[in-house]
Write a protein that binds this DNA or RNA. Sequence first.
DNA 1: GACCATGATTCTAG
DNA 2: CTAGAATCATGGTC
Length: 354
Amino acid sequence: MDDQTRMMTGLTGLGGLQQADVGDPDSVRKQQSLGQPQQDIGDILQQIMAITDESLDEAQARKHALNCHRMKPALFSVLCEIKEKTVLSIRGVQEEDPPDPQIMRLDNMLLAEGVSGPEKGGGSAAAAAAAAAAGGSPTDSSIEHSDYRAKLAQIRQIYHSELEKYEQACSEFTNHVMNLLREQSRTRPISPKEIERMVAIIHRKFSSIQMQLKQSTCEAVMILRSRFLDARRKRRNFNKQATEVLNEYFYSHLSNPYPSEEAKEELAKKCGITVSQVSNWFGNKRIRYKKNIGKFQEEANLYAVKTAVDAANVSAQASQANSPATPNSGTTSTPSQRCSIGFRSDDWDATEVY
DNA sequence: GACCATGATTCTAG
DNA sequence: CTAGAATCATGGTC
């Protein structure tokens, strides 16, 4: 038995109302001449209209009486049906819109940047991608991009907590409205379908708020990213102490200024820079030194003296500590010199200058 | 603003 | 992949 038939069955108390007649003005006119059933409907409507003129108690009593009326369910389903056919069908046309391309774009971006999606993985992948784009090695990225990742994680956290808040608010509001409509459906014609539609409308409204959240999150990520990449592009001179450490190593290993990986790591740690920066520095230094030895002579002498003084101090301390002076202790005891194993180049020919 | 110093990047050769 | 070399881009000084 379909809905229509069931509805009609429920209407048997109304007399000869036929399915095809519902909502048809001609049939209404026909019905009016039929007498009794029409009289019943008229009475009910009269009672409904009269409620507004009565006191609250009377109205409640009247409402209760109406609710208990034997024809109430039938009348109700007719009203629901009519409403369904008219208002809701018109409204429903523009409601079924496809997923918003804008929101899809934002979703994709947030996923790619590691803000949404699986925990951590996306974020570090994005950071690594950014590092690769900026020319950094993956090893260095762990140090260099920790700040970037920390900020990204912060954005991620804010995004998720806000999203959760919105979702909670949305479900709370939806539940509230649903309960309200269910409650009201006892007194006015509201079909489950209509409640469904109302829920969809609420979800759409909330998703537009979510879109704003996604948009501002995307903007924040873009700003962070551009700042991060700009910071990498900008050249900052190393501090004096770092340059001194590097120069000290360079001139004390002038015969073979190719620090091993371990030495580079140690120098990097000492100077507060990355290993690749150490490599860059040595690369630049070697080439520039070779190109213009005369210019660097003074600097070389300066560091030679410095190294000698340091070595003397160390050996003095060593002898004070009762340890027998070892040959070469003056030239091999500084930490940087201890790292001189592992030189690669065998064609460095600038030794004669030093 | 010119000029130099210097860190970073890119290309090439081994 | 690494070092050398050239080059770029920016910082600092005058």
